[in-house]
Nucleic acid binder design. Sequence first.
DNA 1: TTGTATGCGTTATCAC
DNA 2: GTGATAACGCATACAA
Lengths: 326, 326
Amino acid sequence: MATIKEVAKRAGVSVGTVSKVINHIEVKPKTKQAVELAIKELKYEPNIYARGLKVSRTHTIALILPTVWHPFYGELAYHIERYLRQNQYKMILCNSEGDYLTELAYLTMAKQNQVDGIITITYSDIESYIPPTIPLISIDRFFNEEIPYVSSDNFSGGALAAKHLDDVGCQSVCFVGHGSKKDNATRNRRKGFVDYCEKHQKCYQIFDDQGNHEAFQRNLELFLKNEVIEKSAIDGIFAVTDDYAFQVVDYLIQQGKRVPEDVQIIGFDGIKSSVTDEIKITTICQPIEEIAKRSVGGVIALINKQEVSHEVLLPVHLFQGKTTKG
Amino acid sequence: MATIKEVAKRAGVSVGTVSKVINHIEVKPKTKQAVELAIKELKYEPNIYARGLKVSRTHTIALILPTVWHPFYGELAYHIERYLRQNQYKMILCNSEGDYLTELAYLTMAKQNQVDGIITITYSDIESYIPPTIPLISIDRFFNEEIPYVSSDNFSGGALAAKHLDDVGCQSVCFVGHGSKKDNATRNRRKGFVDYCEKHQKCYQIFDDQGNHEAFQRNLELFLKNEVIEKSAIDGIFAVTDDYAFQVVDYLIQQGKRVPEDVQIIGFDGIKSSVTDEIKITTICQPIEEIAKRSVGGVIALINKQEVSHEVLLPVHLFQGKTTKG
DNA sequence: TTGTATGCGTTATCAC
DNA sequence: GTGATAACGCATACAA
């Protein structure tokens, strides 16, 4: 691997001059030519570590999320990487799998100057470990007044879901969600849903189980069996994520219910498993690409010591699918 | 940010000693304690760039793939990141979107010592740009005798698909694929399929359109309409990927055909859109996790100048879903 | 066992 | 406009 010194020698100039050429600082056209020739001949590539040592900027940011193996996070990661790349940033991907130790390891990386900033979407309490000096943007999660976050307008989304079920004629609706204390996003969806129901005096129920994956599924099916299949007490369901909506749809159909004739169902997220895929259900769509864009813009602004708004709340919209009467 | 010097001063030792402690080289227990205390007090974090400059190892590898926003690549990326992390490596993710310029940019990164190695899954002709000095593992793609690759046993998979259609009673089968010149993987699936049919004197057809996404879909539907709907000349279809299998299933059902009663369909890949998702169709499953494991093992071995087998061919297996008569 | 000194490849600040 | 040189923070060979 050629170094800047060898380039300088070959071009018959000093290292300083070579450095100038590399960094696009004005030099005499003739010397510039000579240097560029030498660079080509020696196939010189600047060593990023030496440079990093000097300027302590890596042009790398870390993205921490539960797992990229999921339509929502996959799409988000895809767009974030794309926007970062457009801004000459590289992205280190971390699947935390919800493990806060893994997340902490990445915070440490940032402290070591391995990354210039972090975008995180987490449900762990890493708040107290985040040094105020690290440029960090949180997605979907409010930590404190210091840490900027970008999120969909989950409250309005929840209300919109309730309104839609109302509009399509549901008499007795239900919220289905996984009661996580940490997840502000889904909590707000529930709040919005409830708020609409209260204001419009809709009859509603809440299923908000806190168990793990298996327990949740078991309890959900028990609940549905009882309320929907046997008592027919519910004719409209708002599932807090599309994943849950699928579960609900699958179970009800398996139990002989018709969707949307007997029960109408609306989800949240608007997931597609790839760019060519299609949204499968009626759902509240998050503006994933916009979330990505704002997050990237946010970290880069933070890195450049610019002002960043503490809260960015992005509008959602309804996608009319086949699980409600359109 | 504290440096090694400040730690040394505070601990009353020299920088060399501090360095030894950090790198787990034997020192007197007492001095070790003192140093560790100082490190804690000053919240010292080693600067990775200074270290990188010395040892030129970054413990970072780049993963280049078309897009992480897809169940197959998403799962692959997930596992690769996991294995890398287990080996104290970080992963830079690059969605090339099939653009070879983007891919080249990452090769350059490797040359600049920004990454220690590369795992790539590409359909571009980047072959001539890969410097032989860069540790690189190719997935699903044979480049040349120098570059090691890991892949599913696509040929056997294709044959297995044909055999399965044969076993479940199909009389006249068909291969559906996107004829890419670069994609050895899918080509071998086709070869395996044809090989089985020839050997067992099965009647078969090939649909291997080369158009872009829209053209392909249009032509595929034309073909299916003609051969399946009108002529009923096909009762078993092997789609070269699950994505295509879904397309085929959707179209045929929309056209009034029953699956698997009228037409049986088998895909390839075994994709699930998340860890909790389920495989939806009969398909040939790739051992995605094993591919990830071998790829990671491969690059790390290359980085450590160990021998790596040029070809790793991993066995596939049949998943019996509801699109064939089990 | 520990300290000292050198150099890794760059950038940036000076003189010239 | 260009060249010399001092950092940047660390690892390491060698000296003590």
